[in-house]
Design a protein around this nucleic acid. Structure first.
Lengths: 231, 231
DNA sequence: GGGAGCTTGTGATATGTTTCACGTGGCAAT
DNA sequence: ATTGCCACGTGAAACATATCACAAGCTCCC
């Protein structure tokens, strides 16, 4: 019954599943065949109960008294997350950050690939990075529709972000990962996640200031940042 | 009484304050002098009650019947977040991502500056990017201590991350923003936040899969990703 | 000065998430 | 077989966060 959620999983649970997945992959490479919720939680900075609960949202994958079989659990988590569907991705904006995203080997390793890249700068159009040819912006719609791309990475300047978003939505994109420091408006059927460096740095600035202000040593400042999946 | 929190603010509240801050800065550039919680919430993808509550954790900055004075509120939020303390930052790892971080203009704009960069690759050591000279790894400790750097951005390969982290902690760093896809272990007095691209993409993959599976049109798929500060 | 209309700040409430604690099932060894 | 131990799965409790709804306070206008 691995496909039937009992109740719906919190977003944070999904994010933790990603971490479990990565850890399981590493364990498998090391030849580890079985693991307990206790051990897995130690490796991912979670708690044993949390690991069990997170998995329980989707089914029952372990054996009482024994633990989880690494390979089987990895496969289940992979299915849950939709890794391996091999969703092709488009990248918009091939500046410093965009280039870094193209080169990021974490994506292909997890089964995601940037198959198209776009930029508005004529000097970048036509260049080839990591086997991907940079195309001009006016080819977004036809390319995305032709290749049935549903996920896009948005690495354009803040000012251009909303306009590009609308083009992408019009082209049929269903998921957006935004790197621009702006609040994007998208229709309800489009899913949006954002990586906002300023927010992360300012959050650290806040906790730093707070811990300095409150005598620092006192009340063992928690080093965990739940939302940011510390670690 | 702007400095006295009544109860402690949730992490998410802090992250939203970052968004309010950015929005207020933009409003000020546009010459807007006053704003209501209703309007501010619309601009940041929050709700009016949430805006008021988030601010109320730190004081009472508005005027009933009127709203908030943009400049004054921006100043207060800036103080709360510790922006303007001008914490100098160190960057470890000047690969694709590291270079992008050096070039990211969102940091200086918000008052954060990368003042030192390090890399283990001899070919990169000595190069200058954005006025920052790349130094070898063995100078981490002395440099960080000499310049009293408390925040570091970690853009090294996953395998090197834990080792470098320990060097940084030993050097006295208090805050780490980690970009490597690993679970870092840090002592309790060190604050840690992570940006993990695989987690973001896999989360989108999950919600996409979910929305496709559940008939997609049904029950207006929520496009908001609280943790990721959608938009 | 007084009333109308607006928006904040905040108790109370509802919702969501994590943690606890233990029943259940499974393995190993005697 | 029986005993002892282990670790999962899960209802219930505790905790955290978000939402509601309204009293308090301000401004403007008459």
């Amino acid at each position: 019954m691995s496909g039937s959620p009992r109740g719906k999983a919190p977003q944070m649970a999904i994010r933790r599943l990603s971490m479990y997945y990565r850890t399981l992959a590493a364990l498998r490479e090391q030849g580890v065949e079985s693991i307990s919720s206790e051990h897995l939680s130690a490796l991912t900075g979670s708690t044993a109960a949390q690991v069990r609960r997170d998995l329980a949202y989707f089914g029952s994958f372990g054996r009482r008294g024994v633990g989880y079989e690494v390979h089987s659990l990895q496969t289940h988590v992979q299915k849950i997350l939709g890794i391996g569907e091999g969703w092709p991705m488009a990248l918009i904006g091939v500046g410093n950050l965009g280039s870094a995203l193209l080169a990021y080997d974490g994506f292909p390793r997890q089964g995601f690939r940037i198959v198209e890249a776009f930029d508005s700068d004529p000097r970048r159009v036509g260049t080839v990075i990591r086997d991907v040819v940079v195309k001009p912006m006016d080819q977004i719609k036809e390319t995305i529709q032709a290749r049935h791309i549903v996920m896009a990475l948005l690495a354009v300047p803040a000012k251009a972000a909303q306009g590009v978003t609308e083009q992408l939505v019009a082209a049929g994109v269903r998921c957006l990962l935004n790197f621009a420091p702006v609040t994007l408006k998208v229709p309800p059927h489009v899913h949006l996640a954002s990586v906002d460096l300023s927010i992360e740095v300012e959050y650290l600035s806040y906790v730093l200031r707070e811990s300095v202000a409150e005598g620092q040593a006192a009340e063992g400042a928690c080093s965990d940042v739940p939302r940011a999946l510390s670690g």
